[in-house]
Amino acid sequence: MQIFVKTLTGKTITLEVEPSDTIENVKAKIQDKEGIPPDQQRLIFAGKQLEDGRTLSDYNIQKESTSHLVLR
């Protein structure tokens, strides 16, 4: 499924993911596309910070959901 990640600069990154993917996996995909190390990434969805060990389905992130990327 596709999800979108919006950066603070207003850029939207499109990612191909599975509901069973962990947040860690998603951060690795963002690193592949954008070159941002996962330890600098914070992903926010529905006002919550997403934890590495959880999956997209844990957070009820469905296709075409948009989460926000904040850099630390």
Results as ranks from 00 to 15, higher is better:
15 L>P: 00
21 D>P: 00
59 Y>H: 03
24 E>K: 12
24 E>M: 13
5 V>N: 00
62 Q>R: 11
4 F>A: 06
8 L>Y: 13
72 R>F: 15
72 R>E: 15
71 L>C: 06
49 Q>W: 14
12 T>M: 13
63 K>P: 15
10 G>A: 03
62 Q>K: 11
30 I>K: 00
70 V>A: 06
5 V>S: 00
22 T>M: 06
42 R>S: 10
9 T>E: 11
67 S>Q: 11
36 I>A: 03
16 E>H: 11
31 Q>M: 13
8 L>D: 12
50 L>I: 04
32 D>P: 02
4 F>I: 11
35 G>V: 02
51 E>W: 05
9 T>A: 12
42 R>C: 15
66 T>P: 08
14 T>I: 14
51 E>D: 09
19 P>H: 06
53 G>Y: 10
38 P>W: 11
19 P>T: 07
67 S>T: 15
50 L>V: 04
45 F>P: 00
64 E>V: 06
37 P>K: 07
28 A>C: 10
38 P>T: 14
43 L>I: 09
69 L>E: 02
35 G>N: 07
58 D>R: 02
23 I>A: 02
69 L>Y: 02
30 I>Q: 00
16 E>P: 04
29 K>N: 03
55 T>Q: 06
41 Q>P: 01
45 F>N: 05
2 Q>L: 14
67 S>L: 15
33 K>Y: 08
58 D>Y: 14
28 A>F: 12
41 Q>A: 04
4 F>K: 10
59 Y>C: 03
24 E>V: 08
40 Q>D: 08
1 M>W: 12
5 V>L: 05
37 P>D: 06
23 I>W: 02
35 G>T: 03
64 E>H: 13
8 L>S: 14
33 K>F: 08
72 R>P: 11
7 T>Q: 06
11 K>H: 12
54 R>N: 10
8 L>V: 13
44 I>G: 03
6 K>R: 10
21 D>V: 04
40 Q>M: 11
16 E>S: 11
57 S>K: 11
46 A>T: 05
52 D>Q: 04
43 L>K: 00
34 E>L: 15
51 E>V: 09
13 I>V: 05
21 D>M: 11
62 Q>E: 12
25 N>Q: 14
5 V>H: 01
22 T>A: 04
46 A>H: 14
63 K>I: 08
60 N>I: 04
39 D>Y: 12
28 A>P: 00
15 L>T: 01
34 E>T: 15
55 T>D: 03
46 A>E: 15
69 L>T: 02
43 L>W: 03
32 D>R: 12
38 P>M: 15
54 R>I: 05
15 L>C: 02
61 I>R: 01
23 I>F: 02
32 D>G: 09
65 S>A: 09
51 E>Y: 06
35 G>P: 02
61 I>N: 02
15 L>I: 11
1 M>V: 05
33 K>D: 03
28 A>N: 10
32 D>W: 09
21 D>N: 06
52 D>T: 05
62 Q>G: 15
2 Q>Y: 12
53 G>F: 10
31 Q>H: 14
53 G>A: 10
37 P>M: 06
71 L>R: 07
13 I>C: 02
15 L>Y: 01
27 K>W: 03
30 I>N: 00
36 I>H: 07
56 L>M: 04
13 I>W: 04
30 I>M: 02
59 Y>W: 02
4 F>P: 03
38 P>C: 09
3 I>D: 01
15 L>N: 00
5 V>A: 02
38 P>I: 15
42 R>P: 01
53 G>K: 11
13 I>E: 01
27 K>F: 03
40 Q>E: 10
69 L>M: 07
22 T>F: 08
56 L>A: 01
51 E>H: 08
35 G>Y: 03
22 T>R: 07
46 A>Q: 15
29 K>V: 04
8 L>H: 14
28 A>M: 14
1 M>Q: 03
56 L>Y: 00
22 T>Q: 04
57 S>T: 08
4 F>M: 09
49 Q>S: 09
58 D>F: 13
72 R>W: 15
48 K>N: 09
7 T>S: 06
7 T>P: 03
18 E>N: 13
20 S>Y: 11
45 F>H: 12
32 D>I: 13
71 L>F: 06
41 Q>Y: 12
59 Y>L: 06
65 S>K: 07
70 V>P: 02
33 K>Q: 12
38 P>G: 07
10 G>Q: 04
40 Q>S: 09
49 Q>Y: 13
46 A>I: 06
27 K>N: 00
35 G>K: 06
43 L>N: 00
61 I>C: 02
36 I>W: 13
62 Q>V: 12
69 L>S: 02
63 K>T: 11
19 P>K: 06
23 I>N: 00
63 K>G: 14
25 N>A: 14
11 K>Q: 08
24 E>S: 13
57 S>Q: 13
62 Q>W: 10
40 Q>Y: 08
3 I>T: 01
41 Q>H: 04
49 Q>M: 13
14 T>K: 09
7 T>L: 14
57 S>E: 12
11 K>G: 08
46 A>P: 01
20 S>P: 02
47 G>T: 04
13 I>H: 03
66 T>F: 09
26 V>K: 00
33 K>I: 14
30 I>G: 00
63 K>Q: 12
69 L>C: 02
47 G>A: 04
9 T>D: 13
42 R>Q: 13
19 P>Q: 07
58 D>P: 00
7 T>C: 10
38 P>V: 15
2 Q>G: 04
48 K>S: 08
24 E>T: 09
4 F>C: 09
56 L>D: 01
3 I>P: 00
52 D>G: 05
43 L>T: 01
60 N>M: 07
69 L>D: 02
12 T>A: 05
60 N>Q: 08
30 I>F: 02
61 I>P: 02
56 L>T: 01
58 D>V: 03
52 D>Y: 04
7 T>W: 10
44 I>R: 04
49 Q>I: 15
1 M>Y: 14
43 L>H: 01
59 Y>M: 03
70 V>R: 08
40 Q>W: 09
17 V>A: 05
4 F>D: 05
5 V>R: 00
1 M>L: 08
51 E>I: 08
62 Q>S: 14
37 P>C: 08
52 D>L: 05
63 K>C: 08
4 F>H: 12
69 L>I: 13
51 E>A: 08
70 V>H: 15
10 G>K: 04
